[in-house]
Write a protein that binds this DNA or RNA. Sequence first.
RNA 1: GGGCCUAUAGCUCAGUCGGUAGAGCUGCGGACUUUUAAUCCGUAGGUCGCGGGUUCAAGUCCCGCUGGGCCCA
Length: 530
Amino acid sequence: MVPRTAGSTTLDVAVLRARAESAKDAAGKYAEEKVKEAVGGATFHVRGRVIAFRSTGGLSFLRLRDRTGEIQLLAGEAAMGAAYTALEDIDIGDFVEAEGTLTSSKRGELSIEPSRVRILTKALRPPPEKWHGLQDVETRYRQRYVDLVANPHVAEVFRARSHIVRATRKMLDDQGFLEVETPTLAPLVGGAVAHPFETHHNALDMHLFMRIAPELYLKRLLVGGLERVYEIGRCYRNEGISTRHNPEFTMLEYYWAYATYDHLLDFTEVMLRGIDAELGKALPESHARWSAERPFAIDEPFARVPMAKAVEAGARSTKVPAWEAAVDSGGAAALIALLKAGAEGAPGDFGGNMKEWSKSSPRAKAVDWGNFRKGWLKSENDGERLFCAYEYLGEPFLTEDYKAADGKRSIPVFITEYPFEISPLARRNDERPDLVDRFELFIHGRELCNAFSELNDPDDQAERFSEQVRKKAAGAEETMDYDGDYIRALEHGMPPAAGFGMGVDRLTMMLTNAPSIRDVILFPLLRPES
RNA sequence: GGGCCUAUAGCUCAGUCGGUAGAGCUGCGGACUUUUAAUCCGUAGGUCGCGGGUUCAAGUCCCGCUGGGCCCA
């Protein structure tokens, strides 16, 4: 190995560029004399990967990339002497160390004039095509290590993800929260409604589930007096894979004693804008591009819409005459009564009206009637029916119904006033016990957050667990288990509190305009290679 | 689980009507002292995803399977 020149130091590319900043002219070009004037002839070395190599014979140009930036090596036979021939061993993809001084090329590009270049690591496989990078989606996900090198914007998304997580922590830390870690292996399924992964612990001969949510452990900490806690961690759901679903994903949950869901409505707007602002500070150029391309606006106030109102508005938009009349006379409740009567008269087809209703308007035609019907027939009570009506008449149209002042971008929508039947962990509203103090946030039609004032009445909670167990016995696939220890914890007293959950992957998708969750997860789950 | 699309050199892609498998980049050999996707000359590189079928002849047409993508469940 060739020893380094004594006294030379290792520098990041960004540091070098900063040192030569004063030698840069208005057009961003450098002149050799100005560079020498600014930085002198000091020797240093840089380390990085060779990403381009052009040789004109006695002079070679190598582009070097480190984690902070890129810089050109201007390697001349005159300056390097016998060492020049060793450049022949360098391939694109190799990691090298170059030792030299700063200069400029004739075209005005800041460059390092090396006295020697040594290979630190050899790349044995060829890099992807240099014009188009690596395009094949499957190879990109399977060989992310190549994707990250070949497609710089991919690495930028993961830098953004890191800044988003950091900014999220900062928002909560600044409010006096404590970050904690709770079990991902648990003997019971709880905290959400989803199909779990199952596993087994040999020494304890114990059946275990991978957590689908951290909720019940975090609320135990409220009982323990940790009044503001959060966790950012992996959760696992054994369900389908799509552009919005990966079997393992990252969730933020926080629990805030003495806060209510009203408080969290406000804080959610503040937090999302704050995270976006931090991202803008950290990655200004990328952030400018991403925010310009966003189909939604987060700078304007978010809409706040009770679920019943969303159903009423959705029903009116279909222009189904019977629905409009029902909503006029008795709101969402009357609409549900109408649909119920129809469904009972002729199960599966809303009383034979479905075909006719679907012709009432373009909006009516766009309704997913088949699944609406299926969901409706599975609903056991009016709370579930309201939610079903919301899922098929309201939620799919939020993006077009709630627009920013420019009339183009959508605005985020909080749906509030959820039925208690579909919210087994949320606190009932004081005035209307059929509702819970809960909201979900939808940004450009995609669910991002779920939050509510927490149910802290052990008797009510025990009843709701029992109802979940009954549903499971009746054949429901996605239910919570009865968690006796959690009830015991509530019996010790949980302070009134509000809790909040958010998909970190989805937030990253939204802020970086990523079309698929696989674009924000470094190693998404794929079928094994054959 | 269903529908549509897709699979050709290490990478990015062509391949027409069924008639001997193509280009660029990369690689390898050579020229070149200011390149920026350098340029120029030469050269190598193929189980056309897998398995059947039709045909004198299949990368191409048909069937099945597998991987991947998009949409729906």
